[in-house]
């Protein structure tokens, strides 16, 4: 019996990693396309309530946000624990929402101005008093399309 042995060390061939960059690039592009950077730094803490009948806000350029909640931990010292309203990067007094939103709208494209949607992102434990005040202010500013931000409820 003749046994031909060319080499003792046959071994498993190394797996080619040449396609690894391609795969990673693919993932990279996926995340680049879907990502949206946070526009503002939240100065209030909030977790939006749950609901089921949600509509998606399609055009981001038409949406302006109002954040409502308790101030962030490090801001409690200066701002207290009462629910506060944040628009863009600053706290806004209830009575000034009117002007702020009007200003926001004026900075928009003229054709888009009537389509402005104000999304209220409020903490679920907020009292309705402050929300009602905001709603009244928005009415005064003629920003009548609003959206109560919420997350979809996981079926129980």
């Amino acid at each position: 019996m003749a046994k031909i042995r060319k080499d003792e060390k046959k071994g498993v061939p190394a797996i080619s990693t040449a396609s690894l960059p391609d795969i990673i690039f693919m993932l990279l592009f996926f995340f680049m396309a879907t990502t949206s950077m946070k526009e503002v730094t939240y100065m209030v803490r909030f977790s939006v309530p749950e609901a089921t009948e949600l509509t998606k806000l399609e055009k981001k350029t038409l949406v302006r946000y109002i954040y409502v909640g308790e101030p962030r931990m490090d801001l409690i010292k200066t701002h207290g624990t009462e629910s506060r309203i944040q628009i863009d990067d600053e706290f806004v007094d209830v009575n000034n929402i009117d002007q702020t939103i009007t200003l926001e709208r004026e900075s928009m494209n003229e054709a888009d101005q009537p389509k402005l949607i104000v999304s209220i992102k409020a903490d679920k434990e907020t009292k309705m008093g402050i929300i009602t005040d905001i709603k009244q202010e928005l009415r005064d500013a003629y920003a009548l399309k609003i959206s109560y931000a919420a997350v979809s409820k996981v079926n129980d």
């Binding site: 981001k60 009415r139 399309k145 919420a150």
Partner: peptide
């Protein structure tokens, strides 16, 4: 961005 859209009077 999801939410309950409403129209104010």
């Amino acid at each position: 961005n999801k939410g309950l859209t409403r129209k104010l009077p």
